[in-house]
Computed example of a mutant assay.
Amino acid sequence: MKLYAQILYNRAHWIFESEERPEYDDSIVLVDITGRGDVKEGWDYDSKTGVFTEPVYEPVEPIEPQPTQEEIQTQTLLNTEYLVIMSELTNL
């Protein structure tokens, strides 16, 4: 059995075994990876060098959760009450 990788957008999209190379349309790129068992689906493929590399992802900064409509309304109400109380205290 031979091991093949279907290449899609310069990545190993699908890895499968077959007795012989399947005949598909020319737009489907298949690479024989027999003996290269370290290649995994999702790995980057350089068509010029024929080398597969594990993808490197940049760390993503966590996104602060946005307040809900209810939280915004509650904060607005609290701020308004605070200002009213402060105004009443200064008028004493």
Rank of each mutant, 00 (worst) to 15 (best):
L89P: 01
E23N: 10
S47R: 10
K40T: 01
N79E: 13
T74L: 14
D25Y: 15
E17D: 15
V60W: 00
L92G: 12
D32I: 10
T34G: 14
E61T: 07
I7D: 08
Q66K: 05
S27F: 13
Y45R: 00
E19C: 05
P67E: 04
Q73P: 02
K40I: 02
Q6S: 07
G37W: 09
D26I: 07
H13D: 12
E54R: 13
E81G: 14
G42K: 05
D44N: 11
L3V: 13
E61L: 08
G37K: 08
Q66H: 03
E71Y: 07
Y9T: 09
E17S: 15
L89G: 01
H13Q: 09
P59G: 04
I72P: 04
E70M: 03
W43K: 06
R36W: 01
P67T: 06
G50E: 12
W43G: 06
D38A: 10
R21K: 13
K40Y: 00
D46A: 03
P62G: 01
Y9Q: 15
G42H: 00
F16M: 07
E71L: 08
D25C: 14
K2Y: 15
D25M: 15
L30D: 07
I72C: 12
V31H: 06
D46H: 03
P55Q: 03
T34C: 13
P65Q: 00
N10R: 04
E58K: 09
K2Q: 15
V60C: 01
G37V: 09
V29W: 03
L92S: 07
R36T: 01
T49C: 06
E17V: 09
T80V: 04
E54K: 13
E61I: 00
L92E: 07
T49V: 05
V56G: 04
T80E: 12
E41I: 10
E20T: 10
W14T: 14
L89F: 06
F52T: 01
E41H: 04
I28D: 06
D44R: 04
M86Y: 03
E70S: 06
P59N: 12
E61P: 00
M86K: 12
I33V: 14
T80S: 13
P62W: 03
E41V: 12
Y9N: 14
T80L: 11
P67L: 04
I15M: 05
E23Q: 08
L77N: 12
R21A: 08
P59V: 05
E41S: 12
M1Y: 12
E41G: 06
